[in-house]
């Protein structure tokens, strides 16, 4: 039995189901809370922190917080717009994001958030760390320069027996995404495509095909990220 609850986001009255994650409940009410790691129906990772909102005065990640009756959520406040822009900028300086040379450009969620917040230049110094590319598996390029550690691939992509094909390696600033070469060799085209599709950036690329959509017809060329959510509920 799902219990209907009422809450507000920036004063807007919303309805949801008790226990539903705030980020999903917001989307159902036409409110976009930006997020890079979350995917509906997946155990939340709570890793990108971009969806941080204020709930009854406390900072919470909207992707890990269940919606509750009477919650007063602050989302698009100047404070959080700046924090989100800062996190996007931080991701841009942490990895090596050369958009002009990236196949995912135009379809990349990170880049799209850069557009949304009109990031002209990051406020932080570029790290320019060396990261290795793994092109040894038959179906996939792993372009670690672009990884933002959202854990989507870790959570979704498994082999036939449910074993992880992707996992983290290291910790802190030596953290990297790792691919199991033995199991990756068993990936089908469908799984490889899925892995590329769920990757919010251009870290996982399917081999042999690329740049399918020309500039102008890509996901975020003219439509800001989140506008599908906002437009669906007017």
């Amino acid at each position: 039995m799902s219990e209907t609850i009422k809450f507000t986001i920036d004063g807007k009255e919303c309805q949801g189901t008790k226990g539903q994650l705030l980020v999903d409940a917001a989307a159902d009410n036409g409110v976009y809370i930006p997020v890079l790691c979350h995917m509906r129906d997946l155990i939340p990772a709570g890793s990108c922190r971009i969806c941080t909102v204020k709930v009854n005065g406390r900072n919470m990640a909207a992707c890990t917080t269940p919606a509750e009756e009477g919650m007063a959520v602050e989302n698009n406040t100047p404070e959080f717009l700046d924090i989100r822009k800062a996190i996007v900028e931080m991701l841009f300086v942490e990895g090596n994001h050369f958009c002009p040379a990236c196949e995912k450009s135009g379809n990349c969620d990170l880049q799209a958030l850069g557009y949304k917040y009109q990031m002209m230049v990051p406020r932080f110094p570029y790290a320019f760390e060396r990261r290795e590319i793994d092109a040894t598996t038959p179906k996939i390029f792993l372009e670690r320069n672009r990884c933002i550690f959202c854990k989507r691939c870790v959570r979704v992509i498994k082999d036939e027996e449910g074993r992880n094909i992707f996992a983290f390696k290291g910790r802190g600033n030596t953290l990297e995404i790792n691919i199991d070469r033995k199991l990756a060799a068993t990936m089908t085209d469908e799984i490889a495509q899925k892995a590329m599709d769920i990757c919010p950036v251009g870290c996982i690329l399917k081999k042999e095909i690329g740049f399918v959509n020309p500039i102008g017809q890509r996901k975020y060329d003219t439509m800001p990220i989140g506008s599908d959510i906002e437009n669906n509920h007017q």
């Binding site: 090596n96 050369f98 002009p100 040379a101 570029y126 320019f128």
Partner: peptide
């Protein structure tokens, strides 16, 4: 442009 702002494609060598 990207090169002036963040090094751009020439900066692919950074880190090496």
């Amino acid at each position: 442009g990207e090169c002036a702002i963040m090094g751009g494609l020439p900066a692919l060598r950074n880190g090496i």
